[in-house]
Amino acid sequence: MDSCPAERMPVLLFGAFDRHNFGDMLFAHVAQALLPGISLRHAGLADRDLRAQGGHRVHALSRLAAGERDALLIHVGGEILSCDAWRAAVMLLPDPGFQSVVARLDSSPDEKLRWAKSFLGSSALAPYSASRLKYPCLARVVYAGVGGVELGRCPAQLRREVLADLEAAQAIGVRDSLTRAQLEAAGLSARLIPDPVVMIDELFGARIRARSSRPALAAILKNFPEGYLAVQCSADFGDDRTLQAIATGLRRVAARTGLGVVLFRAGAAPWHDDLAVLGRLAGRMPGGGALFESLNIWDICALIAASRGYCGSSLHGRILASAFALPRLSLLHPASGARPGKLAAYLATWEIPGLPTTVTPEHLEPGLSAALEADPLRLAARATELAGLYRTGFAGLVAL
C-alpha cells in the first residue's frame, strides 16, 4: 500500500458536487487549487456534467475506483456523514421528476432504501462516506472538513457504517465542534478545521470580482447604485406567513438603509431553493426586490461579494459572505426548534463572538440591522484567520 509515492498516487476528489449545490460545487475548486500540479479526478455518486454552472465534469466513484489502484481519496467537505442513501439519491434526480418519486415512496422506508440502492448502484447506507472497506482500490482516505451534526440521531446501522469508514481513514478533519465531540465519544480522533469555502476570497477573489462586469451582475449594480443585500431562502420557507414575515423585515431594513434586495438561489437540486418561492417573495416587495436567476456558482459568488451584506438560510451563502468580510445573518425556519443543525453548529464553532448569528423570519429586521453594524475590521480579521486555519489544516491532513 505504501509502495506508491504520494506524488504519483491517483488522487480522487469525492463529494456531493454531482448535483447543483453552491457549497458542494465550490469544495472541489478549493481542493483543486490547494493541490497545484497534481492530476485529479472528480468523483461523485453519479456521472454528471456541471461545467455550464461553474462546476466540474463528475464521474461515478464506483466506475472511477474500478479503474484505479492505490488511489488517494479526499472527501472535500459537506454534511456527508449523516446523508443516507435515500436523500443522496433523490437529490440527484432531475427537478421535474423528483416529486413523483418522493410521493410514491416516502411512506415506505423499506421501499425507499431498495429504490435508492438500485438507483445508486450501491448497497451503502451512507454512500458519500467512502473508505477501503467499500472501495479496496483506495490506498489512503482523507476527510477534509466534513460535517455530521445529525450522526447521533441516525439509525444505528448507518452510524456503525460511517464510524467504520472513518476508523479506516488515514486522517479526519471536521468543520464543527459538535461533529468532533460525537466522533471523539466513539473513540475517533478528528482535527477541527473550518469549512473549505472560507478560502474563496484568498483563492478566487480576483476571478470573482472580475465577473461584476458581466451583464447579469452589471444590471444589478446599475439598478441599485446605493448597494443591495444578497438574500436567499430555501424552498421550505415558502408558506405565505413565513414569506410575508421575511418580506416585512426586508422592506423595513431597505427603507431605513436605502439598500436594495436581490434574491438568489444557492442550490437548484431537490430540497434546496425554488425560483417560484423567491418570485413570490419578490412580489411582496414592490419596487424593492429583484430576482437573480443565474445558477452559475461564480455569478452567485460575485453577487454576494459585491453586496453590502448577506441574509439567508444557506450555510455557504453565509460562509462566502464571511470570506469576503461582509455583514451576514442566517435565517432559521420557524419549525426548526431548539435542535442544533449544521448551521447553528458551525456558527457556534467559528463565528465572531457577539455577532448576530441566526433569527427566525419574524425577528429579521432587528437581527439584520444589528448585523449591518458589525465592525469591518473584525470581519476582515476573522476572514483572514479562518482562511489561514483551513489552509494549514488541509495541508496537515493531506500530508498524513
Rank of each mutant, 00 (worst) to 15 (best):
A144K: 11
M91L: 12
E111R: 15
A380E: 15
E7G: 08
L178D: 00
L364M: 11
S294I: 09
L34N: 01
R63D: 15
M25I: 11
D49A: 15
G309S: 10
N296M: 03
A71M: 11
A383E: 00
R63F: 04
P366R: 05
A348T: 13
P109R: 11
G388W: 04
Y390N: 05
A181E: 14
G147A: 13
G258N: 02
H20S: 06
G317P: 03
V102E: 11
P334Y: 10
S122L: 14
G388I: 05
E365C: 02
F17C: 08
A168M: 01
A116Q: 10
L400Y: 01
Q32M: 07
L178R: 15
G287M: 06
D273A: 09
Y310Q: 03
T392E: 04
A210F: 09
G205V: 06
S314P: 11
G279A: 04
G354C: 05
A371E: 10
L45N: 02
A306R: 09
L332T: 07
D49E: 08
V146R: 05
A371I: 06
F224H: 12
E161V: 06
G396N: 05
R256S: 09
P356S: 10
R159W: 05
D165H: 15
E373R: 15
R175F: 06
W271E: 14
Y143W: 15
E373K: 15
L377H: 08
I220Y: 07
D299P: 03
L400F: 01
R104T: 14
R280H: 07
Y310L: 10
M91C: 14
Y135Q: 07
G147L: 13
G173T: 05
C233G: 05
A325D: 02
A383S: 09
G287N: 07
Y143N: 11
A255T: 13
G205F: 04
P10V: 13
V142W: 04
E184D: 13
R378P: 00
P356M: 09
V30K: 03
G55W: 06
A254G: 15
N296Y: 04
L329M: 09
L35H: 08
I319Q: 00
R114P: 00
G173E: 02
A190T: 06
L158W: 07
F224Q: 12
G173Y: 06
A186F: 00
L34E: 07
M199W: 00
G147M: 13
